[in-house]
Design a protein around this nucleic acid. Sequence first.
DNA 1: ATCTTAAATTGACATAGATCAATAATATCG
DNA 2: CGATATTATTGATCTATGTCAATTTAAGAT
Lengths: 255, 255
Amino acid sequence: MHNKNVVPFITEKSDCGSDHPVCQACEVRACGMCPELNTHTLQELRKITRTKEYKAGEQIFCDEEPTENYATIKSGIVKLSKILPDGRQQTIGLGFPPDFIGRAFKDKNSSFASALTDVTVCTFPRELFNDYLKSTPSLEHKLFELTLNELDSAREWMLMLGRMTALEKVAALLLDFSDRLHKARILQGLDSEKNNFELLLTRAEISDFLGLTIETVSRQFSTLKQKNLIAIKNQRFIDILDRAALDILAGHENY
Amino acid sequence: MHNKNVVPFITEKSDCGSDHPVCQACEVRACGMCPELNTHTLQELRKITRTKEYKAGEQIFCDEEPTENYATIKSGIVKLSKILPDGRQQTIGLGFPPDFIGRAFKDKNSSFASALTDVTVCTFPRELFNDYLKSTPSLEHKLFELTLNELDSAREWMLMLGRMTALEKVAALLLDFSDRLHKARILQGLDSEKNNFELLLTRAEISDFLGLTIETVSRQFSTLKQKNLIAIKNQRFIDILDRAALDILAGHENY
DNA sequence: ATCTTAAATTGACATAGATCAATAATATCG
DNA sequence: CGATATTATTGATCTATGTCAATTTAAGAT
C-alpha cells in the first residue's frame, strides 16, 4: 500500500486554539470548522470527538443506517456515492480535507461514504453537533459555505454527466483532480507541480464518477496519450502535457 | 398563453408579519425566508425589494453578468441551467416557490436562470442581503436548509444522469415533477390529484434536464403509454396509471 | 527472481440513444 | 374558420459507448 496519498493540511492562518494533543497534531486545525468555535465549545466538543482511521476501500458510512456521527476529513480522500437498487453506482463527490461529511440536520445520509485512499477523520455525535450548529452562527456559516461549494461542484458535474462526451469527461476529471490535489499540497506547504500528479483513483473509480465503463475510460486515456495531451507512467502517474487543449475539451474556455 | 401555471403558496403557518401591501399579498409570506426576519430588518428590506414578473421563456439572470440581485420565487417555476461553450445545455435544477435564486456570498452566478412558466419573484440587492445574512443567524439557517435540499436533489439527479436509462430517466422526472407540483398545490390550499397534472415542460426542456434528445424523450413517453403506465392528453396532461411501476423504474424501491 | 493476483489495455461486436428526415398534432393568428 | 407556425411523434439510419473476451502490465508474495 503506497503511502503518499495522505493529504495533510497546514496553513499559517489562526488555528482552532485547542491545546489538546490530538488537536495540536490535527492537519486541518486551521482551515476546518474548529476555528469557528469558542474555547469552551471546543473543549466540550473535544471530549466527544474520536479520531478514526480507514484503510483505502473501507466504508465510512452508508445509506441505510441512521447517521450517528458526522466527521471532518483530516487527511486522505473520501468518495461519496449513490447506488441504484440493482447495484449500478454513481460517485457524486470527492471529499478532501477539511471537508465535512454527513448530512446536517438529518438523521439519515442519502449516500455512501468510503475511503478512496487511507483516510483519517475526526468524528463527533450528530445530535450534539446539531445543537452546537444552532447555537454557534459562525460555525453554521462555515458549514454553509462548504455546502455552497459542494452544490457548485455537484452542478458542474451534472453538466459533465449530462452533456459531455467520454473524452471530454476524462479531460474534465483530470483537470479537476489535479487542481484539488495541487491546492491540498500547497496548503500543506509542500511544493507541487500542478501538471504532474498521482491519479489516486482506479479506472473503476473513475468510471463510477464519469458515468462510463472501465473500458471506455481506458480508451480515452489512450486517446489523450496518442494526441500528446498527457503522458502516463505506471498507469497512475499523470503528466499533463497540454493543459490548454484539455481545458478546451473540458469546456473551460471563456465564452 | 395558458395561465394555470402560476403556483402560489399559502399556508396557515405564522407569516412574515409585514403589513406592506405587497407582502400582504405575497404568496410565500409564510414559508420563505421572510418569517425569519425581525420586524425592523423586514421593514428595511421591504424598502429595497422589487417585485418582478417574467413571461415564460424570459431570462432572469445569466452566467456572465455579475449578480446584482438575489430573489425569492413567489409564483411559477424557474429553470436553472448551464451551458457549454459550443451551446450544449444542461438543466441543473428547477426552482419552485419559495426557493431562493442566486449564489449567496458570491458576486457571480454559475448558471442561467430563466422562467419556465410565467414567474413572479421578489428581488433584493445582493450586498445588502449578504449583510442581513451575516447578522441574522435565523435567516442564514433558513437559507442553509434550502441549500442542503438543493444539494440533495442535485446529487439525486447526478445518479440519474450518470446511471439511468432513457426510460428510467423519464419515469424519475415524471414522479419528481408530480410530487413537487402536488406539494405546491396542497400548500396553496387547492386540492390536487397527485397522479394527474399538467406537464409544464416542453419535450425540449425535458431533454435538457435528462441529458437526452427531444426524440428520445418522445419515444420514452410512447413506451410508457404503450405499457399503460401513463396516459397523456394533448401532449401536456399526464395521468399516472401505475405509480408503483414508475417507482421501480425510477429506482425508488426500498433496498 | 518467479509465481500469483489484480488492474489496465485492446479488440470484436452489440446496442442505446443520436441524428436526419418526414409526418402528425396542436396552438396561434388573421 | 382555415392558414401558418410550433411542437411532438415516428421511422430509418448512424455512432458513441457498452459488453464480452483475450492480453498485457504492474504489484505483492514467497
